[in-house]
């Protein structure tokens, strides 16, 4: 196909936030004395939809909240929670804090990673599962425990339990898709 070289154009920016999402963010304004307070809820909203918070989304959130993109980035990056590249369909946290550690939590995290062939914090090649360590998840009555980000709680785990958990999680999420 021998076409003429197209005229140089600046790359087109694709908006991340849809109009309904922007509406949903603005709908939270009356709850707080400042618009900036909606930063975390807005980040959560983007994260829920895209399984990540791209830089472009931060700029768009900043525009709605009338703050600088750097303010949003500052907050976003403080929490080790919002990745800039998409997570797997399910994110699973394996606890490594005291009660879980005493019952083998560290070893189970290692086992989960080996079985999936990924390092902690990484996503499986099929994009289904991200496995991370976490500090106490508040489910120590299940120690050694793990939590999926759709709310499913696992534990007390052993190696066989981890295997079964991973197989189950690979079948997908158990919560509703985000509406808005």
């Amino acid at each position: 196909m021998a076409a003429e070289a197209p005229a140089q154009q600046p790359p087109r920016k694709i908006a991340i936030l849809t109009e309904p999402m922007k509406e949903a963010i603005r709908a939270l304004f009356p709850r707080y004395p400042s618009k900036r307070a909606v930063t975390l809820p807005a980040l959560h909203m983007v994260h829920e939809h895209y399984r990540c918070v791209p830089l472009q989304a931060m700029a768009e959130i900043a525009e709605i909240l009338e703050i600088a993109p750097a303010d949003v980035h500052d907050t976003m990056s403080f929490y080790g929670f919002f990745p800039q590249a998409p997570l797997g369909d399910v994110r699973v946290w394996v606890c490594r804090s005291i009660s879980c550690m005493l019952r083998g939590g560290d070893e189970l995290l290692g086992h989960a990673c080996r079985r999936l062939g990924v390092e902690r914090g990484e996503t499986t090649p099929d994009g289904k599962l991200t496995v991370e360590f976490a500090e106490c998840l508040g489910i120590c009555d299940h120690a050694p425990a793990a939590l999926a980000d759709d709310g499913r709680v696992y534990g007390p785990l052993d190696e066989a339990g981890v295997d079964a958990m991973l197989d189950e999680l690979k079948r997908g999420r158990k919560d509703e898709a985000p509406h808005v």
């Binding site: 709850r31 400042s34 900036r36 307070a37 909606v38 930063t39 975390l40 809820p41 980040l43 959560h44 909240l65 703050i67 303010d71 500052d74 907050t75 403080f78 929490y79 080790g80 929670f81 919002f82 976490a134 500090e135």
Partner: peptide, 29 residues
């Protein structure tokens, strides 16, 4: 009275009362 839920993002320090307040305001905790 209005009651609103505000979700954190996995930082222990946001349990400290003023860290919590900063986080609620949309800043780092």
């Amino acid at each position: 009275l209005d009651v609103w839920l505000h979700r954190g993002a996995g930082a222990y320090i946001c349990g400290e009362e003023t860290g919590l307040i900063e986080s609620l305001e949309g800043k780092r905790g």
